[in-house]
Amino acid sequence: MKTEISFILNGSEVRVAVEGHHRLIDVLRGPLRQTGTKEGCGEGECGSCTVIIDGRAVNSCLYPALEVEGKSVTTIEGLQGPKNELSVLQKSFVEEGAIQCGFCTPGMIMSAKALLDSNPAPSEDDIRNALQGNLCRCTGYVQIIQAVKKAARQLKGRR
């Protein structure tokens, strides 16, 4: 039995038919073709599938698709600017060497964005807390922390 749901995805309303057992990530990567959100474990342990729902970073592999009805979802695809440019945070990840294989990157960036949106001047502990659910096997996290710090400084300068 499919149910049609509607929600805001990266600023635009979308309508999609979903099964009761579908998770948000199934809908994003399936019918909506938003493959920027990655599935690393399917059990909420690695954070690769992180998206932002109404301002909160959420594992989309644990989130029932039906529950997104009427909510606002931001995925990595929603961060790009109007002239095909990266956001300050994304650029900072690139410039600081925070990306290697890149599979954890979209989820990592979404967790960092949710943090910076709510806490523009985070301490290093705040950053670690915000990213503790996002696993990375390549980088050892050092340059990821540096990237978030740098983005916070740059965004502060813009305010």
Binding site: G36, E77, Q90, V94, I99, T105, I109
Partner: peptide
């Protein structure tokens, strides 16, 4: 910075 960085950061 790495040449594949921007695409990876964009989820592309």
């Amino acid at each position: 910075s790495r040449p594949d960085g921007p695409d990876k950061a964009a989820g592309k």
